[in-house]
């Protein structure tokens, strides 16, 4: 049986891989994306009783790809029909990262905004109103700290709700 897919996207160094490890547990396979030298990790994760295939995409800065990594990331979003896309954002640099969120939304992709590294944003004195962000973007938004696992239960809950709403 084919599992439904969840793709994790975002620019490099925002904690995508740690997020991936948190969601998948142990069994991950890393392989080259067909026809490229770019590596993509895939694993299985159980959320709300359903097992998903979770894909850690290469870092992407923009939906208009420049590098091979960005091309692969976009191909995964287009060709593999993920039922949910987690856009992992460095909460400290929200302003710089929202353009990609907007591009993914313009494309009409099923998105959840994950404001990661929330602890460091807080240390800088930043408070992000996730409820307000949800309204602005009209998608679910969660604050997380992937290194400690903070906020991941909320994220799982949101994924579960989101999947139900669209299936």
């Amino acid at each position: 049986m084919n599992l439904r897919k969840i793709a994790i996207v975002g620019s490099p160094n925002v904690g995508k891989s740690v997020m991936f490890n948190n969601l998948t547990g142990e069994y991950a396979t890393v392989s080259n994306y067909p026809g490229t030298t770019v590596e993509v990790s895939r694993g299985k994760g159980k959320i709300g009783g359903e097992t998903f295939e979770i894909i850690d995409t290469p870092g992407m800065y923009s939906f208009l790809p420049i590098s091979e990594e960005e091309k692969v990331a976009r191909s995964i979003l287009l060709d593999e029909n993920p039922c949910i896309i987690l856009h992992v954002i460095d909460a400290k640099n929200l302003e710089r990262m929202l353009p990609l969120t907007l591009q993914l939304l313009e494309a009409g992709l099923p998105l959840i905004a994950v404001l990661n590294i929330a602890d460091e944003a807080k240390d800088l004195g930043m408070t992000i109103d996730t409820a307000k962000l949800e309204k602005e973007l009209n998608i679910p938004a969660v604050a997380t700290v992937s290194t400690t696992g903070e906020g991941l239960d909320v994220l799982r809950g949101k994924i579960e709700q989101y999947v139900k709403r669209f299936s």
């Binding site: 930043m126 408070t127 962000l133």
Partner: peptide, 8 residues
């Protein structure tokens, strides 16, 4: 959006 949701 960022300014609307962020307070420092």
């Amino acid at each position: 959006i960022s300014n609307a949701v962020t307070s420092v």
